[in-house]
Amino acid sequence: MAATLIDLAETPVRELNRALHAPGGADVWRVLNPRGAHAVACGVREDLAVDIEGHVGYYCAGMNQRATVTVHGNAGTGVAENMMSGTVRVRGNASQSAGATAHGGLLVIDGDASARCGISMKGVDIVVGGNVGHMSAFMGQAGRLVVCGDAGEALGDSLYEARIYVLGTVKSLGADCVEKEMRAEHLSELGELLKAAERDEDPSEFRRYGSARALYHFKVDNSAAY
């Protein structure tokens, strides 16, 4: 199927997004010349395929539902923030807060993601081919973060129930984040995530991290702190 072409050198982002939101529109889209524009392909709710040829600015594919959005370049702050479902793929690197607060869907970053990747994630699956920056999965509540490279400082700080898998080194673990045993069900879910992200790393070489759940309840020993 031929893609519907939108050139952002000629068409404003608002018009692109309006076209993507309009009922009964094309199923396949190709976006040219994003040149770092913000909010490209935000709030799409249909099962569309959107290919963006170049680097995007902030909040690309934010609030995505059902659509498959591919960025053939780098993405700025907050790519796929608050995604509900669908797939967002960044072929290059992503800036900070990738997948922030996202509830569902799959975010794949082929390159590196910087600080706070998956901050407050609420059910999204994130697979990063490279490294993640400091405080990734900060306050992550649900979902899985897979890092095929290294993780920066304070990984999983104040984590709730999100699960983290890292192949490389972890610079440091954040408060209440601990390494956990890799059981059969974890190898299996990790294998599925890597497959979905079209990656060929061996799940058995990853380590798993999660919440020690020590911050869940008030400790009377800390009463003097308030």
Partner: peptide
């Protein structure tokens, strides 16, 4: 240390540039 204010650097043989957002480097 927290690095929440944005920064991007781009470098070629002809120049080094820094900007808050990529669109200014483009």
């Amino acid at each position: 240390a927290i690095a929440c204010k944005p920064a991007l650097v781009a470098e070629t043989d002809a120049w080094v540039a820094m900007a808050s957002e990529y669109r200014a480097l483009d």
